[in-house]
Amino acid sequence: MRRVLLFTPLALVLILGVMLYNGIGKDPNRLESALIGKPVPYFELASLEDPGQILRNEVFEGKVVLLNVWGTWCPACRVEHPDLVWLAEEKGIPIIGLNYKDNRDEAIRWLQTLGDPYETNLFDPDGRLGFDLGVYGAPETFIVDRRGIIRYKHVGVVDERVWREELKPRIQAYEQEVY
């Protein structure tokens, strides 16, 4: 019994070691979205390009899409922009933009100079829908399935690796689903 007790420190070190090892490489800034499995919150927003056109949740019906939250004030959005254009043009992925807390003219100029990967752009100057979506730092990219249900969220820049490892397999799986 005595002798077994001598091994307690070793056991503790092993347990702690495993726990800490699992934490390595995990980014504590990446929080899981609270909205996974829930529909996109109700919204009524003008289109970025056409202030007269009001868009509602119907834009998310019928196909699996990426919902990309961006703004011209966000440096990381500029970094991921070429990859979004690549996704839209080369891979044919439908991307819906949420222009978050931005200035309309500047946003339109950005799309004209850097290219426009978005099928539709929702204009959310007050950040209302962004808030309801739990957006805490652009860029954020959601996968929304054909029923308008949020299935996945990626916080941070979307690049070729994120596409290959996180987004592509999920989009393909959601497209196969039958309701």
């Binding site: 929080l31 899981e32 979205s33 609270a34 909205l35 309801d132 979506l133 739990g134 805490y136």
Partner: peptide
């Protein structure tokens, strides 16, 4: 708040 940002 939890509904939007999670238990965090």
């Amino acid at each position: 708040m939890i509904a939007r940002f999670g238990e965090f």
